[in-house]
Amino acid sequence: MSIEIRHLNKSFGGKELFQDFSYTFPEGEASCILGESGCGKTTLLRMILGLEKPDSGTIEGVPGKVSVLFQEDRLCEDFTALTNIRLAVPSASPDTIRQELARIGFREGRRPVRTLSGGERRRVAIVRSALYGGDLFVLDEAFRGLDPQTRDEALAYMREKTKGRTVLVVTHDPEEAKIWNGPVLSL
């Protein structure tokens, strides 16, 4: 099911971000939302996720199970990478999680995530989102802060995991938008 936005209006901090905005994100494709900082990309995602309400207008077709990779890692600091992933995906076995983490170059070492580097934490968040699955994937600046090689590995990993699913990718990098090879919404 495609995600349909109709006549959306939203102001934030006195700034009008969306005025009678309508758009349809097609089902089963990776749509990229491009734009400069502060143009409302993340606000649009938050409204799609139901974390923020539009001033007026409707958003339809958002499925029940949505996998979100936020801009921030949003991990439970005192727990290990394994626990953080199993928190969202209890059905995943420790071995599966370790294998998935290893695929994007992270060896899980039973350390609390607060002791991990920024890149390692990001990879934990990526695997959590990939294993959670769902009918819609929302990736908000998902690969920010990763070195070029890890970024390419993580991007390829995420593309494989989201194949055939509806994906909304927020990025400010036109090169990343090209790789996703789907419709582009420029804000």
């Binding site: 936020f70 959590r128 959670y132």
Partner: peptide, 12 residues
Amino acid sequence: RQLLEMARTYRL
């Protein structure tokens, strides 16, 4: 708040 939003989206 960000963790609570994560919990909500991942339906914990």
